[in-house]
Simulated scan of single mutants.
Amino acid sequence: MASPQMQPSMLSILVTFLCISGTFVFGQYANFNKLELPQGVTGPGSVTFGGLLASGPFTTVTDGRIMKWLGPTLGFVDFAYTSPTRTKQYCDGTTDPDKGPTCGRPLALSYHPVTGLLYIVDAYLGLLVVGPLGGCATQLAGGFKFANGLDIDLLTGHIYFSDASLTYTIRDATQPGFIPDSTGRLLRYEPLTGHVSVLLSGLSGGGGPVVSSDGTFVLVPELGSTRISKYWLVGPKENTAEVLLNTNGNPNKIKRGETPGEFWVATSRVGYMPPTPVILPEGVRFNSDGDVLETVGFVTEFSSNVTSLVVQHEGKLYVGSHFTNFIGVYYN
């Protein structure tokens, strides 16, 4: 392990490498701040914002809670949870994956600004929803091995969500020698009927889908295949999919950008700082035609940790990771 005196010089070498490779963007997001979780809590892998009254951000954490940011004085407080068997004494602060089936493991959030409902995907418990007051979420659809991403079509109310595999669970994915498969799926839940339909199968893992603002297509990332596909919901290509973008790294959750027709995806690729390989977490902004518009490097603040999503809100970038105790905020 490098001594503290060596770490700045090693970081300088890595930043220089990133600049030369053209992946690190200076200037536009020159400032950085942390929204820190309570002591002993980790894994803010998903971030979403409510409306004017709900605010936030809301985030998911490793021990099974959904937490809400109430400003720098109060910080993050409990808002909701997914498992009816969860107890604070048994679960709060845990990082033990074997407690997941009891405590829950929410992985993705999406807020409906009209209804005030917060939709949740839990690795063990599937698709759930909770009202504006929080508390125990209600399960809408279950029976999945590894549910991991979702988004709401604000025009129809349909929920698009993903499960990473038909064979392995989130606990399996953390084991030494783990080999992923290609049995992931894109699914749609219709609130009026409760019906769940399979739209795509055979996906190589999954990050988190996103619906276009005009409701014409869904973008689907594949962690294991370094690609993002476009699944058409309407038009002459309805119910078909095509590859939109081949990414330099493994793409995780996708979120709509603040400019119509633009999106942000969190990616992680392998780089090298001899003699050690390192993970390079990045945020990629792209459009609905698959054109990459911007790439922002996060390695200075997140080190060699995988980031799971990038959310653009009021001009700032909110970056979540399952491996930190904070949400990173980048701004001008």
Rank of each mutant, 00 (worst) to 15 (best):
L200T: 08
T193G: 01
V198R: 04
P180T: 00
V210W: 15
L199A: 03
P176K: 01
V211G: 14
P191C: 08
V218S: 04
F217M: 13
P180M: 00
G208W: 06
F217A: 10
F178I: 00
L186A: 08
S204C: 12
P176I: 00
P221E: 13
R188I: 08
G235N: 12
L233W: 03
W232H: 14
P209C: 05
F178Y: 04
G224Y: 09
K230S: 14
G177Y: 08
E222K: 02
S213Y: 11
G208P: 15
T183D: 14
V196E: 10
L233M: 12
V211F: 10
L192Q: 14
P180S: 04
T216G: 13
L219Y: 01
S201H: 03
S225H: 07
Q175E: 07
G208V: 01
P209K: 02
V211A: 06
R188T: 06
H195G: 04
W232K: 05
T174P: 07
F178W: 07
L186V: 09
F217Q: 06
T174V: 02
G206N: 02
I179E: 15
V196P: 06
S212I: 03
L233H: 06
L199D: 10
G224M: 07
R227M: 15
G208T: 06
V220Q: 08
L203E: 04
V218Q: 15
S182G: 03
D214I: 05
H195S: 07
G215V: 06
V234Y: 01
G194F: 03
P176T: 08
K230M: 11
P221I: 02
G177V: 11
K230F: 02
G205M: 15
W232I: 02
D181C: 03
P176H: 04
I228K: 04
H195W: 00
L233A: 12
S229N: 11
G224A: 05
G205E: 15
P176G: 10
R185S: 05
R227W: 10
I179N: 13
R185N: 07
V210F: 09
G235F: 10
V198L: 06
T174R: 14
G184N: 03
L192W: 01
G194Q: 11
S229H: 02
W232D: 14
I228D: 07
T226S: 14
Y231M: 09
V198W: 06
G202D: 07
V198M: 13
I179K: 09
L223P: 05
D214H: 02
L233N: 02
G224F: 11
G224T: 01
P180H: 00
S213Q: 15
H195L: 12
T183Y: 14
V218T: 05
L200E: 11
D214E: 12
F217R: 05
G235D: 08
S204G: 15
Q175W: 00
V196D: 08
I179A: 14
G208E: 13
S213D: 12
S201E: 12
F178V: 07
S213P: 05
Y231Q: 12
T183G: 13
S229G: 03
V220W: 04
E222Q: 14
P209L: 07
V198E: 12
G205N: 14
P180K: 01
G215S: 14
K230W: 09
L187R: 06
S212Q: 10
G215T: 06
T193K: 00
S182N: 13
L199Q: 08
I228E: 11
V211S: 11
D214L: 01
L199P: 05
S229V: 03
